[in-house]
Amino acid sequence: MGCASSSKRRRRAPGYEDPAVLAAQTSFTVNEVEALYELYKKLSFSIIKDGLIHKEEFQLALFRTSKGANLFADRVFDLFDLKRNGVIEFGEFVRSLSIFHPKASESDKTKFAFKLYDLRGTGYIEKEELREMVLALLDESDLCLSESAVEEIVDSTFNQADTNGDGRIDPREWEEFVKKNPASLRNMSLPYLQDITTAFPSFVMHSEVED
């Protein structure tokens, strides 16, 4: 009995949600959600110790530094931050990561990637946005490509994807494009998520089961 009352007093971060509820809504089991909570705690106490993931903490985990901006990390952070309040809460973390589960549906991955690349949220991926992303990638990877090579890559990709030739990629064209070019969604599946309980074993569940 003493155990049960002490487990109830355990402090939870704001935004904590019941693992059973999250498991029911995502690709994860309850055990896996508990393991993700271990990872979440680690990330959310790395700089600002309030139990919420701030952008700097997200960057620190991705790049080992919290300084500097990265177009793609910013985009991912903003999409994870479903409530758009500047932090990633635990439920948002689990729901968003669920899309990256190798077993999650291709359709969810396709939609998420579209939102990611629709930089200005117009409902289309525009040529200028694609160019901006290619330039950002070259910049972060210290790769050098001539302006004409960048144009060639952007043009050839666009010509392939923009089948109705209106100068922008709509969700339907995107769906067709990724079917023909599945490697474009490579970053949307994280093998780590399949054995998350080994990477982040959780002992929390055992005390809660007694309740």
Binding site: A113, E152, I153, T157, S184, A199
Partner: peptide, 25 residues
Amino acid sequence: RPALMNAFELISTSQGLNLGTLFEK
């Protein structure tokens, strides 16, 4: 001449999109 990698495939190699890093200790 080898076929060009499509731009989205290239972008998918960005470290900012490699969330696997979150799981590395």
